[in-house]
């Protein structure tokens, strides 16, 4: 099972419930809100797609397949942006 975690060389700050993440080497900034922000908070520790889904489903009424698809899309985006690693 693939696990994901935040990269360590980043600068992230929470402002008014949104996360802003700086990639200092690439000079890019990413903003996360809502479920994306919650996933980012959880990714402080290793997470799998299913562990993230379980946590998200504690707060949101989302079917398993929809939640997992959204989380996979989010993780792929974060991998592409160099913000998380497997």
């Amino acid at each position: 099972m693939t696990t994901y975690i935040r990269k360590t060389n980043l600068d992230a700050v929470e402002m008014d419930g949104n996360w802003v993440i700086l990639h200092p080497s690439d000079y890019t900034v990413t903003k996360l809100n809502g479920i994306g922000g919650e996933c980012w908070s959880l990714l402080k520790e290793k997470q799998s797609v299913s562990s993230l889904r379980e946590e998200i489903q504690r707060h949101y009424d989302v079917p398993d397949d929809v939640a997992e698809k959204d989380i996979e899309d989010f993780l792929n985006h974060m991998l592409d942006a160099g913000l998380v690693t497997t």
């Binding site: 402002m15 008014d16 949104n18 802003v20 900034v29 809100n33």
Partner: peptide
């Protein structure tokens, strides 16, 4: 604007 949006717009 929200603060996070402000950071994005000002960078």
């Amino acid at each position: 604007l929200e603060k996070a949006e402000s950071v994005m717009k000002m960078l």
